[in-house]
Each structure stands twice: as C-alpha cells, then as structure tokens.
Design a protein around this nucleic acid. Sequence first.
DNA 1: CAGATGACAGATATTGAAATCTGTCACCTG
DNA 2: CAGGTGACAGATTTCAATATCTGTCATCTG
Lengths: 195, 195
Amino acid sequence: MAPPAETLTAERILEATEEVLRRHGPAKATVVDVARALGVSHGSVYRHFRTKAALREAVTKRWLDRTSQRLAGIAGATDRDPATRLREWLAALFDAKRHKAGDDPELFATYTVLTDEYGSVVGEHIEDLVTQLTEIVAAGVATGAFTADPRPAARAVFHATGRFHDPGYAREWQRPGVDEEFTAVVDLLLRGLTR
Amino acid sequence: MAPPAETLTAERILEATEEVLRRHGPAKATVVDVARALGVSHGSVYRHFRTKAALREAVTKRWLDRTSQRLAGIAGATDRDPATRLREWLAALFDAKRHKAGDDPELFATYTVLTDEYGSVVGEHIEDLVTQLTEIVAAGVATGAFTADPRPAARAVFHATGRFHDPGYAREWQRPGVDEEFTAVVDLLLRGLTR
DNA sequence: CAGATGACAGATATTGAAATCTGTCACCTG
DNA sequence: CAGGTGACAGATTTCAATATCTGTCATCTG
C-alpha cells in the first residue's frame, strides 16, 4: 500500500521542507527550493499544500508533535508514583528543549520563527502538554498524594515552569545555575500540590 | 544649586531622549534628533554620554527604576502580613506591566527593544526585584508563616511568575482568563511556601 | 484523466548608490 | 577655560530599481 519512493506524497514534501529549512533558514527557504530538492516543479508542491504558509505550518506541527510523543510515554507510565512522574515529565520537557536549543542553535532559531508564525499550532501543542500534565495530577489526586483541581493545577504548573520550556528563555538554559533554579521551582510547585 | 533651566544636563538629555523615543520609536530615534529637540548640536550630547548606546542604556535604566520604586513601597510595608504582602507585590508587578503594555503598546514595544539591547541593566533590575521579594519571604519565615530559604525561594517565585511580568508574554495579558491563571499560580506558590 | 508542468501577474525580497547618522576633534565664544 | 560647535571619516540606513518568489491555471502526458 505504501506508494513507491518516487511518488510525490505530502510526507516526502514535508521531509524535503525540513531539509530546506535546515539548509537555508526560515527567511530564505522558498517553495521553489523545496520543489527543486524533490526534482519537481513548484506547481506540484501546491497540489499537496494550498499555500506556503500551510506547508510551513504542517512542518511546524510535525516538529512539535515529536516532542509531545516523547513526553506522552512518561505521562502514561501509570505504574510510577505521580510526584516522581511529574518531576520526570517536567525534567524531560526541559531536557528536550534544552538539547534542541543547544545542539543545533540555528535549527532551533528556525523553528522558533516558525512557532511564532503559527500561534494556533503552538496553542494546540500546549493544550496537548497540559492534558498530559492533567493526567499526572489527576493520578496524584486519586492516590491522595495531591490536593488540587487537576486541569487548572496542571495549567498553573505548566505556566510556572515556562522559564524552562518557553523558547523565549533559551538563552538562559546555557547559564550555570539553571538546574538549581529548575529544581527550586519544581520543589516549590510540588510542595504546593502535595496534600 | 539646581542649574538654570536652559543649562544642558544629563537629566534634560534623558527627558528629551524619552520624548524622541516616544515619537520616533527605537529604530528611528537618533542622537541628532535628541540634539535637535534640545536645540543644541549633537556634539554637546556626546559631552554627557560617551555613546548612543550609553544614552539609550541610561534611559532604559530610568524606566525600569520607576517600576522598582513603586514596588519597593509594598515590599517595605512591614506592618502587613507576609502572605498578603507577597500576593499584593506580585499583583502590583503584574498590574504595572499589564498597564504599561496595554495603555501605550507602541511605547511598551519601544522599551521592550531597549531592554533586549541592554541585558545587563535588566539583570540588575531583576536582582533588585528578587531582593524585594526576598525581604517579604524572609519576613514570612521570621513570622513562622513560611518555611523556605528566602533568597532561592524568592528567586523561584519570581521565575515561576515570569508569565505575568516578562514582556515576552505581553500578548497573553490581554486574553480573558489570565487573572484566573495568575491567581492559580500564586495560590500554588503560596501553598508551597506556607509551613 | 489524474497528476504534473511552466508561463504568468502581482507580491516580496535583494541590491547598490545616495543619504543620514555616529563619534571625534580642532576650534570657537561668553 | 568650561562648555559648545560643526566639519569630517567611517558605519549604517534608506530608497528605488531589479530580481525572485507565490499562487493560479490552461495545457500537457503517461
């Protein structure tokens, strides 16, 4: 059922777009470049994505979804105790972001531009993450470990840790002492949640 | 001892610079404009500020200091109980920022550009604010209301409330529901601090 | 005939020459 | 002679012409 390798699919276009963005950056990456990379005319790209914006948006969504999926594994590990899971989930989010930002700063900057462009996609991603957090908090409430209204509490935890996952703070993630700051905030939040 | 009104002082240059920034914005405000507004040659401005950057930095500092001074009043009100003082201080910070951003968005954008340019001035301003918070937390620890190491706890509170005072989030401050989000975060933090 | 093409019009970006600005300094002036 | 000036060199910005890109669509082809 999988189409032959040479068939032009949305998937192949997205991969080529990621590569073009990596090479040229967000300002210079054009639809013509993507078409050239695939060896087709740019008109063909427009058969799969109505506009350049739609294409960039789809690439952005893909990138964010990869992070969500990684974290979903931790949120769903219902065998572990909620406090630990919350800590690990937040640490994993911080770690994922910090590595993305530190390992390839240019690519990270590229995606930061894209996420700024497509606020609604980011909004959905955040709702997704808050839902994962809600799952953990709700588990804690069920256990009796936490006292809280899960959804608003999860949202508060997400907002309170913004410094450790919002791309706007990426510069700070390299500085010494951030880990202590992270731990201090998470400790304080966990004390606030704990019965 | 106060110099006559027509004497060129650093103070008068700073006032003129604020006005020029308000009128022309950060990108188009030039030293020549400032000199023109004061009716002097631009060489005279350079007698008081070594570079354009030094002038802009001084204006930025003045602007930040005005906020610090307002908040210092609340932090220093040692007659009131620490938990209330902490809430009021954070609410006052949020309120001050939100009004600056909402009442004159262009001027706020101008100063956001300036604060991005002069990170060290912002750093000092933040240290100043964290010191004020530390004072409140320490008072709470003395009372027995809070359990915490005042300085790191104050820093954690500051970081955890970044969403409600960092200019990068200014867009969010207009949205409905932010007040509830603010209250949720502050409640959680206060629960964490409280013995 | 489904899918690809490339010519085209209007929008956007690039480029380089001209204009303006920054920072210095030798020289005024009250 | 303290404080101010304006001409100047080099850096930066502006602006208009030129080039490139986006999105459409009539046409082509396997």
